[in-house]
Nucleic acid binder design. Structure first.
Lengths: 230, 230, 230, 230
DNA sequence: AATGAATGAGATTTCATTCAT
DNA sequence: GATGAATGAAATCTCATTCAT
């Protein structure tokens, strides 16, 4: 049994090592440019070995997404305390993002891969086609955002006629595209800080767009980006 | 002379036929899944023949984009009259979109291909990398939107601290993503109308988000979608 | 009948025009890089038209060779007077070469194409396989040189144990290779004069090599290259 | 460790098997007619497999050349002893050639491929364009011959006004052309022995042509061809 | 007579995936 | 469990040649 435990642990460790290598490559070159061979080389394994841990390239990439997503969700949940209102939660959401991904290129991964994966696993449902989307934990983020917006609407701070699903999608859109455009650039000329400033100002605009008139707009400001590595 | 005319016309027609086939395939399967062979088969031509009309796959795809983009720009310009203010122009923009692409899958094309092309011709510049983007007429749309936002800012209807470039990008983001997600679905289960409703409500939200307080929000509403084919 | 004459003449003129274009291209880019399309474009004709005059690319190239070769043979024969001995004839041969090809890139053609053609029409026979070689007038040059050497052997100036065929081949070898190597260079950096100096010194060496001992070596010198364009 | 050794050996063997197949095809059909597909078929492998061993067709062909060339150089060097004069070395050169290539079609390879490769890797420099030529070991042979001629000139046996580079080129010319012409024939009607006799007599003639008067011509004779397979 | 259009056959190369050891 | 080797299927592109008008 001790042996079995160790085996399991070792297997899991190696799997993570592979995921890490793959993710680094995706961050550097963009999802569609990364081949199984590239990953194998970086992981110092054979291509065949990759297939012992992931039944296909699609699954491997899927797991990269999931890993990052789960890490985010876990961290965000750890920050949440009871009885926070929607705006407070949204500020926490942004803070979690900055804390976790903002300081590194990691932030790129989830969204960079989405496009690649989308064919088989759409990020979230459009037009009531929700079945497929639920595979993959990225759907969880979608749902989480949707819930936040719903809560705000219930609290009367967001307009009553908005569609939380649509808003959630848009927010993910924005994240995705900023990231994707960043990935297109050579790693050297990327500027994480600018990217984050863009993100922030767009999120703030979204918030203003769905907030009822009369709310003090200063409440809709998101935390600053201080202390981020350049 | 009559002969030359006819030849020219026929050639142009065949070229368009190819473009149409290619576009249909892109609409149905997404740009990255479509090969020259697929296009040739659909057009009932040999692969070699395609190269008589387009010097490479990239050029063919470029032309698909440009054609749709140019059609849109032309039509939009035909609607514009002097002395319109920013909000009026934006409503016209939306109307042009509906009139032209809203009634068919055509709307999908421009943005569906963007991702494929992006590597070589980024849709628009992020982080001061503007040189490359200007190739391709898709850049024109970006500039057009940017100008609209600028005008609105100058007219005092949009907040003074917004960055028109960022807003323009976001609007294109939104268009793109909705389209891309639609392309991922099997053609049968797509619902153009829902997609357009999404687009509309997002654009309205954007507008509210960048509009100064005090403006009557009813001014920010976009035209309805009546009369669209399902 | 007058009409028929004119037709024939016109046809012949056009044929020559095509040949001239093809030859120019071969001179500039080397035989294997020139396609039927290139020739058609240069001749301002359609590819299809080329096939009205030449049944295949091979035949067209063949005729380029023949044309240049025949021109040379004709000119050489016009210089010859009765009762010349072998060495005098060889000096005339060299002079004819200089006069005709030495002043222009034309010299490149015959041999540049040989390699390309060789597959189907070997330049000259090696190992008693003479049938094929006789097609194409390039064989005539081979025979001509062979005869010169034979004559010299009969006159007692060349060693009796040499094989005139082998010598003739070698001389053609040398011409060919110098030319081929020249064609590999970009046209700008070619130096016809150097090439000719090489040719000359190699021919002189060949002559010395097959001449019996005791003959005054100054007799074996070839005419100078004065007056050649750089 | 034994396993690794075996693997390496096997890999090397397979690589050689591919090279052998490719070389056989080149010998039989000429370099420009041989495609990767042909090689794959002959080697009973898939095209893709070839790319596991050679990163491109060019590299594969390069290696064929280099292998044969290196084998020759090595063997020649093994025959050389100190203090040989130029004529003795030249005789050794010829002997090495006979021993190594004379008995098989191998002799054909080096020169047959030259033409194919020439565009990218000219065999040797003409007109001061030496940079490119030095890539590839075939250049080594050129240099080797040049040195031999230089040495002979220094020893006073060759005329002082010859250009060793030009002579070296010519010798390679001769080798090449004889071989190339042989390749053009159907394998059945080739006659290696005749080809070698041609080569020999041409080399002897070259030697006589550059040797100063007064040297005993019997010294310039090359070893006989006895014991060669037909 | 001339040609625009079309094409079949083939070239090189890539890559996710399988399999024997 | 790990892997080197192998591959099928597909991608883009080229070119000599034919054919209908």
């Amino acid at each position: 049994m001790g042996i079995n435990e160790r085996r399991k642990r070792e297997r899991s460790e190696r799997k993570n090592a592979i995921l890490r290598c793959a993710r680094d490559l995706v961050v550097e070159y963009g999802a569609e440019k990364v081949s199984m061979m590239d990953i194998a080389q970086k992981a110092e394994l054979s291509k065949a070995t990759l297939y012992l841990y992931f039944s296909s390239k699609g699954v491997l990439f899927q797991e990269i997404c999931n890993e990052a997503t789960e890490r985010f969700i876990e961290y965000f949940n750890s920050l949440v305390t009871p009885n926070l209102n929607a705006l407070e939660l949204i500020r926490l959401f942004w803070k979690a993002y900055l804390d976790l991904f903002g300081r590194s290129d990691d932030m790129i991964v989830i969204f960079s891969m989405k496009q690649y994966m989308l064919a088989e696993f759409p990020f979230f449902p459009i037009n009531e086609n929700p079945e497929k989307a639920e595979s993959g934990s990225s759907f969880v983020i979608y749902t989480m955002i949707e819930k936040l917006i719903e809560q705000g609407r219930a609290e009367g701070i967001f307009e009553s006629n908005i569609n939380p699903g649509v808003i959630a999608r848009t927010i993910l859109f924005i994240f995705s595209y900023i990231v994707e455009n960043t990935v297109k650039m050579p790693k050297s000329s990327r500027n994480v800080k600018t990217m984050l400033e863009d993100l922030k100002s767009l999120l703030q605009m979204m918030l203003r767009g769905i907030t009822v008139e009369g709310v003090d707009r200063s409440q809709l400001l998101l935390p600053d980006l201080e202390n981020l590595k350049e």
